[in-house]
Design a protein around this nucleic acid. Structure first.
Lengths: 361, 361
DNA sequence: GTGCATTAATAAATTCTTTAATAAATATTG
DNA sequence: CAATATTTATTAAAGAATTTATTAATGCAC
């Protein structure tokens, strides 16, 4: 009964992928020794290890990931699920998430993990597809912060014992852990920045429905700053207009606002994208930013520094966020207890908010 | 000899993942029938199929991907390898690739494939890691268009029988197939657009070393347009300054240029990012775009429309490119013969290039 | 230096879960 | 009832990891 594998090798070296049995045959050892040698097990002598390694290299052998994973019941892979955002125009990915992806990829690679990227409609039953199916050891969820509609899914995930981290606010009602930016604080900082320059009448541009908790929280920070800076003889005034996270929505919101409020001094936009649209709309109405009206954003997307006037905004470090998301997930996988993390946002002051120094041409 | 699996189930339902054996036991059929039923094989009656499906759903069963892959020797996964670009500032991903990623993700998902995303230094030996290790059925390579340094790797890939597509120019020296934009044509279009307005003295901003074939090809298109519009009594003039794909490089290039050439009329930038830097530098020198000097980009990144003045550029449809990359790869996997594809770029005219209508504030 | 326990190194057998090929059983039809 | 069609069961991979078994080598007491 000759070993089938060992014979075939001689026929077509490059045609068939070598297996550990082939290596074992060539090295004159058993398959198990090959497996252990290549994984650096102390149960195999250094001498045979090197001999086996040399043969493996020579035969261009690589461990079959599927077989290895099946046996060891782990995948060394994490899945990144991006919620397909129906509010965004086209099928474009939220640029902030795309940027986050960069950080996450680096952080997973650093740990020798693969990253599986996938889009999922919020409505679909993606629970089963990843950790359950042994495709990944853990999940990173982007865009599932909408606890109203995602809550049930997350509870199911939690009950199934899946490992997952959520990007977003750390809401008590949501199961699991999250890494997110302190949206309240961010909005507070940027609003305070405007108020400290003496502005009194501001508007918040962003959808504050409960299905959009991030914007909602930013709105709270906006109001807190207004309250702090309000005095009885010189009260602050705060408006709000709904706007989804698109440029078009930003334009729209501005048009709606300016019809009724000609004395607006500043726009606190819930995202950079909204701010881009708002600035465009203001320009087309003949208003100059920041001379006539100040505008601020949130996210510090790459374009924020490019536009004219450059946009004052809140920076969320995607590299740091990505690293923390991965870190937290790894800890969960290793059954280390974790806590949700809130990142402190940073105010980035640029031209669009400088009321006094009207340096726009 | 009782079936171990079937017994365990009763102890801890949510603790252990159900296998097809468990389903079979519960349904009173054999394991193979379960496998066939769930994969929709015609060899199993509709009635039993539904019964088994119901039980599987009930027990929250999912096919183990690793076992399935191991057995069927396919992965239903493709790997996206991004070349870690050392020329870009920080470890930021080329934003154009990030955008391409969006298209690719959608296209792979549409076909029921998973997408594995990974960064790889050009120098690393990533050949073995993917198709060889049965992690993916095929590879999409972004940023490996530099055939000088990537050529050997690609030849090895090719010889190993791997399936891969390259994003980039279809260079004869490179093995394998590619999907890319007609860079020559794109640069020609944008240059022609400037020349047709009567501009005569232009500069190309971009690194044209052979290690950057895309920029190099764009430079060729630039020169072709110059040649076409040159007349003996009114010759065109074309300069060139090296610039890597960063904003800083764009700034630098402009500073270098303006020292010696005060009469420059237009800048053809090899990428939008370079153009952003160039415009900033021009503004800080007190020059107005497009009144004093016209600027064009290449890529049509999201920010191109946001900046002031909005940037005239060449659009490469990332959605279409992604779809074609995936499509080509799938054909290779199915052993259908494929041809390299060249996409026709589209000129997007915005404010930054309108020499006559000086509508910059 | 022999006998026995101990340790190291390796081999053999089993396991992970699924799919595919083949065999067997049942149902259907001429 | 034989012959075919349909359905289900059995068995055999797929390739690596791991548990258990085996062999060889070493240490120590007598």
């Amino acid at each position: 009964m000759p070993k089938r594998n060992s014979n075939d090798v001689s026929q077509e070296p490059s045609k068939r992928k070598a297996t550990s049995i082939d290596i074992a045959y060539k090295a004159g050892v058993s398959q198990s020794t090959v497996s252990r040698a290549l994984s650096g097990s102390p149960l195999v002598s250094e001498e045979t290890r090197q001999r086996i390694q040399a043969i493996a290299d020579d035969m261009n052998y690589t461990v079959d990931k599927n077989a290895s994973n099946l046996r060891s019941q782990s995948t060394k892979t994490i899945a990144l699920l991006l919620a397909d955002d129906p509010t965004t125009d086209d099928s474009h990915i939220n640029p902030f998430f795309l940027s986050l992806l960069g950080g996450i990829t680096h952080s997973t690679a650093k740990r020798g993990f693969d990253l599986l990227v996938s889009f999922q409609q919020l409505s679909q039953n993606w629970l089963a597809d990843y950790e359950e199916a042994h495709r990944a050891d853990g999940l990173i969820l982007l865009g599932y912060g909408d606890y109203v509609s995602a809550k049930d899914k997350l509870i199911t995930l939690k009950n199934a014992g899946a490992h997952f981290v959520l990007w977003g606010p750390n809401h008590k009602e949501l199961p699991g852990h999250s890494v997110g930016c302190n949206n309240e604080q961010g909005a507070f900082l940027v609003t305070e920045h405007l108020l400290s320059q003496g502005l009194k009448k501001l508007a918040f541009l962003g959808d504050i429905s409960p299905s959009n908790p991030e914007f909602h929280t930013r709105y709270i920070g906006f109001n807190q700053a207004l309250k702090k800076y309000s005095t009885s003889n010189n009260p602050t005034q705060g408006l709000q207009v709904d706007a989804h996270n698109t440029e078009a929505a930003g334009k729209h919101a501005v048009e709606e606002l300016l019809n009724n409020h000609h004395d607006l001094q500043g726009l606190v936009c819930a995202s950079d994208t909204i701010a881009f649209g708002a600035i465009k709309a203001l320009h087309s109405k003949g208003l100059k930013v920041p001379k006539d009206i100040c505008v601020t954003g949130f996210d510090d997307m790459a374009a924020a520094a490019y536009i004219t006037p450059s946009l004052t905004t809140i920076r969320q470090s995607t590299a740091q966020a990505g690293e923390l998301l991965v870190q937290q997930l790894m800890q969960q996988i290793q059954s280390t207890p974790v806590e949700s993390i809130t990142l402190m946002p940073k105010l980035v002051i640029r031209d669009s908010s400088l009321a006094k120094i009207s340096n726009t041409p």
